[in-house]
Design a protein around this nucleic acid. Structure first.
Length: 311
DNA sequence: AATAGAGCCAACCGCTCTTCT
DNA sequence: TAGAAGAGCGGTTGGCTCTAT
């Protein structure tokens, strides 16, 4: 059975009533015939129609009033994560990935907070993305996702690479032929195997990026409107070139301009791809054994291929 | 073609925080 | 002010799908 958005919703839930979940039900669920598991098309329409007429909120009473045999929490989740008209679906874009990496480095697992800066994306989606993609890479690198080693890899390697690719993509869109050659050139240079093992990267973290600094004012491909920016605060919340003057990290990434610090841009003005640093100054564990050769490097680049090629 | 394993993601849970009475 | 109800959050689960063997 397909729902109205084209998804297969045939009895596929671990928690469908027939599957009798092993988790404990709350008291009110035990005492009534509340449904669990995947939502049916009829339920979706009921919920959407009710909210269209009456608005959202007061989810428990909403569930009753809409004649939905669901908990209020379930209704809320379904609405926020799926039915809301502004839910963005589809692959996480490069820009979004970059934001997630940066914001996660700033706030940790504050998914809802991170989601506020990715309009249309839900905290659940970002959380899933993090767990499936990012943690996978950590696993491949044989380090903990919360380790400094992994965070450094993200910050000094993957994020600059993402930036490079974002710009390369933009350039490609504008000037296809020349840009393609440029991308090829940088990809060639950016492969450590081709650079030679010892030519790795690095400035001190202070030179490279201060804590929580991440500001390049560059338009990216999409223009997002956040709840904040779409209301009265649009201009003040925009950062663009103003971002460096903005003392509030919460105001980063709000209008569709991804901002990176100057330190992530090479002296030539092109993005530093993340490995033109000097290994001797690599912060902490970003040392020779980590980056400049041997199995680890191979592993790293295999992972990087996975990271970028899966998009 | 069949099977196994990995990845994805919707939906659940328990807990905490906020708002209401 | 205290207790109840509502709302929101992060963590977890497990069925479906895809890919590799």
């Amino acid at each position: 059975m397909m729902d109205f958005k084209g998804r297969n919703i045939s009895n596929n839930s671990k928690n469908s009533p027939s599957s009798s979940s092993t988790t404990t039900q709350s008291d009110d669920e035990m005492m009534s015939d509340l449904r669990r598991g995947p939502w049916t098309v009829e339920e979706d329409f009921k919920l959407m129609n009710y909210i269209a007429t009456n608005g959202e909120g007061r989810w428990n009473s909403l569930a009753r009033s809409a004649d939905l045999k669901r908990t209020g929490k379930s209704c809320r989740l379904r609405w926020l994560n799926y039915l809301r008209p502004d839910v963005r679906r589809g692959n996480i874009t490069l820009e979004e990935q970059l934001m997630i990496l940066e914001l996660h480095s700033r706030w940790g697992n504050r998914w809802s907070k991170i989601a506020q800066h990715l309009p249309g994306r839900t905290d659940n989606e970002i959380k899933n993305y993090w767990r499936t993609r990012v943690q996978k890479h950590a696993k491949q690198l044989k380090c903990d996702v919360n380790s400094k080693q992994f965070k450094d890899t993200m910050r000094y390697l993957w994020m600059p690479r993402l930036i490079e690719r974002i710009q390369a993509a933009n350039t490609t869109a504008a000037v296809p032929t020349a840009a393609a050659a440029e991308v090829t050139h940088h990809q060639h240079l950016s492969n450590p195997a081709e650079m030679g093992g010892g030519q790795w990267a690095a400035v001190s973290s202070g030179e490279m990026m201060g804590n929580n600094e991440f500001a390049y004012a560059g338009n990216v491909t999409q223009s997002y409107i956040t709840p904040e920016s779409s209301s009265t605060a649009a201009s003040s919340d925009s950062f663009g070139t103003q971002v460096n003057q903005n003392p509030n990290p919460d105001n980063y990434f709000q209008t569709g301009q991804v901002c990176y610090s100057d330190s992530m841009i090479s002296p030539s003005g092109y993005f530093n791809p993340g490995f033109e640093f000097l290994a001797a100054d690599q912060p902490n564990n970003m040392n020779q054994s980590w980056l400049d050769g041997g199995d680890t490097t191979d592993n790293l680049w295999n992972v990087e291929d996975i990271w970028f090629n899966n998009m």
